[in-house]
């Protein structure tokens, strides 16, 4: 083979093989993010991952059971529907006039809320009986003005877990944000 041909074939290989290898591998391979056929180490790793996830779930539940028994468990969620009239900064939550949490949202969290995610704002314990629950929403309202709104609800806690969802919704008619409270009994 002449040097010219030699270099030419190297170049050809470089073009058809190497640079394309990133997305389209060499001749014996097709483009794909392919995994090799399931091998023994692969199966072992899959089994290990499954084991870790299972034990993680169990420990997570044990921790919850210890810290927040079902009989007193009280969870507060925050959701955002559209959110054109309100840019949420933070939420303060009071139960029976005691502040139980202040939460400042990051941009990433706000994006997740806008996508349809629901933030678990608070997980705690509440004795059974009647309680007054107040949430203050702080952020920017219509026209970029500082905005703070509170919403209060009296809730009855039974001996089962109680979920409360704070919904920030747009009131198109009023061109204002609206704040709703939904109570979910499990």
């Amino acid at each position: 083979m002449s040097p010219r041909h030699f270099v030419f074939y190297i170049a050809l290989f470089a073009a058809l093989g190497l640079p394309l290898a990133a997305a389209v591998s060499a001749d014996d391979k097709l483009p794909e993010n392919t995994a090799p056929k399931t091998s023994a180490p692969d199966e072992e790793i899959q089994a290990l991952k499954a084991e870790v996830l299972k034990i993680n779930r169990e420990l997570f539940m044990i921790e919850e059971d210890i810290l927040y028994p079902e009989s007193t468990q009280f969870t507060v969620f925050v959701s955002l529907d559209i959110g054109d009239f309100f840019a949420l900064d933070s939420v303060q939550l009071r139960v029976d006039d005691k502040i139980v949490t202040n939460y400042l949202y990051t941009q990433r969290e706000l994006a997740a809320l806008k996508e349809g995610g629901v933030h678990r704002l608070y997980l705690g314990n509440l004795k059974s009986g009647r309680h007054e629950f107040t949430a203050y929403f702080i952020g920017k309202g219509p026209h970029g003005r500082d905005y703070k709104r509170g919403v209060t609800k009296v809730i009855d806690k039974e001996l089962t877990p109680l979920f409360v969802e704070l919904k920030i919704v747009d009131d198109s008619g009023q061109q204002q944000p609206d704040f709703e409270v939904a109570v979910w009994d499990q």
Binding site: L53, K54, N56, R57, F60, M61, E64, F77, S79, R108, E109, A111, A112, L113, E115, G116, G117, V118, H119, R120, F163, E165, W184
Partner: peptide, 28 residues
């Protein structure tokens, strides 16, 4: 469309690429 806030909480983790947390929540 979120009809159960617990599923919304899973999505909240998922949309932030917290896949492990999302898996844990669903499993729990």
């Amino acid at each position: 469309s979120v009809r159960d806030p617990r599923y919304g909480a899973v999505l909240f983790d998922f949309y932030q690429n917290h896949y492990f947390d999302a898996i844990t929540r669903i499993m729990v």
